[in-house]
Computed example of a mutant assay.
Amino acid sequence: MGAGHSHSHEAPALGLSATARRATLALLVVVGVVTIAGLIWLWPISHPSVGGSSMTAEGVDAVSGRITALAPCEDTGESSGQGPQHACQIAQVEITGGPSAGQTVPVELIGVSGLSGLQVGDGVNVAEVAGIDGEASTWAFVTADRMPVLIGFLIVFVLAVLGVAGRKGLFGLLGLIVAGAVLFGFMIPALTSGHPAVAVAIIGSTAIMFVVLYLAHGISWRTTSAFVGTWLSLIVTTGLGALGVWMARLSGMSSEETLALAGVLGNLDFPDILTCSLVIGGLGVLNDVTITQASSVWEIRAA
């Protein structure tokens, strides 16, 4: 294995025994083969159908727009109370996308959306809702257009990482991209396809570790020791998480969103999903802790 690039000086040879090297490499090969086999086995070939949902029906697709005017709703005497649930504004939205581009339509901002601080000139996403029994269609607020803000923060984040960490920061960003690709390209589709959540979490997390650790810290025995420690800790975390979820009788359903998700995808095992989230959440912590511990032990041994 070649020297790593993540340090200004590489640790000297520490006299690792041939047995230790062979055992570590053997474990690495086994984990790699199991990970590749798991990716093939769990790869989401088909996706669940949600065609019966009204959100995909014609006329309900969200389109972009821009607020041109804001005014409080008329007081009908029914919503004069205090609190977020009584907030109401009428926004005049100029449609900028879709077949209705150029039209200006009224959109009600009710409740939380009425208190979100939207101002004239802000971008929003709205949807035309067909009327019932011959009634005229109306326009509904979907969400604020936050992409310009998010892109701005992303640019600042990337520049800060590159300015502080240089080449290592670049490789760290590449590892972050790979982790996102595995999460959104494999893990989430595999979960929605009904594959075992715990198996998806272990295989996906291991694939992320293989790329992120070696990409960010270089190919070396030091990185390999950190990988082995992270992987073994991940297995222990998975076992303890599954045991805790089972013993505490946690359902994994804690909000309206999970209930709605259960209605759309009835094949989800929410306790397993909860365990999967514990594994993914612990991966970042384990990654930082084990690479730091491995480097510390390596330096102490060298001294």
Rank of each mutant, 00 (worst) to 15 (best):
A3P: 11
H5Y: 07
H5R: 08
S6T: 01
S8H: 15
E10S: 14
P12R: 06
L14Y: 04
G15V: 07
S17N: 07
L25A: 12
A26C: 12
A26R: 09
G38Q: 07
I40F: 13
W41A: 15
H47Y: 09
S53Q: 10
S54A: 14
G59N: 05
G59H: 05
V60E: 05
V63E: 01
I67A: 06
P72R: 10
T76K: 14
S79K: 14
Q85P: 06
Q85T: 06
Q92P: 11
V93Y: 07
I95F: 03
P99V: 03
A101L: 09
V112A: 15
S113A: 15
G114T: 01
G114W: 09
V120P: 10
A127Q: 10
A136D: 08
A140G: 05
A144K: 12
M147P: 02
V149S: 11
L154V: 01
L154G: 14
V158S: 04
V161G: 01
L162P: 07
L162T: 00
G163L: 13
G163W: 06
V164G: 03
K168D: 00
K168W: 02
L170N: 01
L173R: 01
L176N: 01
I188S: 05
P189Y: 02
T192A: 13
S193A: 15
A201P: 13
V211P: 11
T223L: 10
T224A: 15
F227Q: 06
G229A: 12
L234M: 15
T237Y: 04
G241E: 01
L243C: 09
S251G: 15
G252Q: 06
G252S: 08
M253C: 09
T258V: 12
A262C: 05
L268D: 00
P271R: 07
T275P: 13
L278C: 12
G284H: 02
G284S: 02
W298D: 14
